[in-house]
Design a protein around this nucleic acid. Structure first.
Lengths: 205, 205
DNA sequence: GTCTATAGGTGGATAGAC
DNA sequence: GTCTATCCACCTATAGAC
């Protein structure tokens, strides 16, 4: 049990993160956080003086947590196929909760973002691309993946495609759209996609 | 010369479209339009009573213009490779102007959007997917494209990947990132990508 | 750390004169 | 069609009591 009871600062970050992923950085206010937490706006400002501060901490925490998840994947498998599937699953899980990737959402609002947040955003993308490129290269050498050209270029395409697939799938409220796109993307790399949760019925409406 | 002098309503739409593509639907205000047009906010409201009205007309006009561009491609070539390249070029041109796809931008803000806009958004995506699927199927039958599986699924992946590639590339202010991703995507379908503007130097900074 | 109170600004939208 | 004037809700942020 790593968390005893989360402090107010942490709870603010949790709520703000959710709000950004659902409504965007310009789509929520300190009032929203205060209401959800049942405290006053001024109390939120006590923990995060400005919205830019809050945003910066949000990205940083998200990036760290992501890095931790990637390290966990590395620790549990050296097989590129399953590693990529687990990577995709991280995005899919967010989408299932009606959330866009935090950084994908912020990327859309990039011009409306405080300057400091832009560099943090890029670092997130850079780290993901680096990790993906390493997995791709390893998979190709091991013979479990098949693709031509440079691994970093494919890594960028994967990241972009997953962000875009989330974006579009969310417009339809249809996670299956994302899953299908991701599966096709991985199939193009030679990953033999396992079907999970076959018993589940397709989304209606 | 189809346009004599654009009326105020048209100029409002032009300005608003640009603002949405750059800053998002929640990232601009009637005041921004009024300032740019050098009229008052109330005059903007005269042409588009509410922001939801303005947004709806914006999507509709964008969709129609896009449909026109796709029809033009159809009229000028039956070869799938060049058709896809021209399709990609539409997105690239927007990005070169620091714009995100209007509908990709709105998709990010979907939960903060007036209800009516959501259906219009989906229609845009649907039409694009339909067109892409048709081009893909035609290319496969003609032997100029090579891919396995269903054309509509690939069409969705292409649309998603292009939207995502715009999103990420814009965070870096790097159009080349988009171009490279798009080229790799098309290469996966067997399109032999021509290099355009070879003489141009790579982006600095 | 949380509160009340408020500043100072901007948001979308409307009334009514010209 | 455009204007001035205005409404009111909401925004980020701060001052200062408890």
């Amino acid at each position: 049990m790593p968390t005893a009871t989360p402090g107010t600062a942490t709870r603010i970050l949790d709520i703000a993160e959710h709000l950004v992923q659902v409504h965007g950085f310009n789509g929520f206010s300190y009032a929203d956080i205060a209401t959800e937490l049942e405290i006053r706006k001024a109390s939120v400002h006590h923990h995060f003086a400005t919205k830019a501060d809050l945003g910066a901490r949000l990205i940083e925490r998200y990036r760290e947590r992501f890095a931790g998840a990637l390290a966990e994947i590395d620790a549990s498998t050296t097989d590129a196929g399953p590693a990529l599937e687990r990577y995709v699953h991280i995005y899919g899980a967010a989408l299932r909760d009606d959330r866009m990737c935090l950084c994908g959402m912020l990327a859309a609002e990039i011009t409306a973002l405080p300057r400091a947040l832009r560099n943090a955003l890029r670092r997130f993308f850079d780290e993901n691309e680096t990790w993906l490129a390493r997995v791709l290269e390893r998979g190709r050498r091991a013979g479990s993946l098949a693709f031509t050209g440079k691994a970093p270029a494919h890594a960028r395409l994967i990241l972009s495609a997953l962000e875009g697939a989330m974006l579009v799938a969310r417009s339809y409220g249809d996670v299956a759209r994302f899953e299908a796109g991701a599966a096709l993307l991985l199939a193009g790399l030679g990953v033999n996609v396992r079907r999970r949760a076959r018993a589940r019925k397709p989304a209606r409406r």
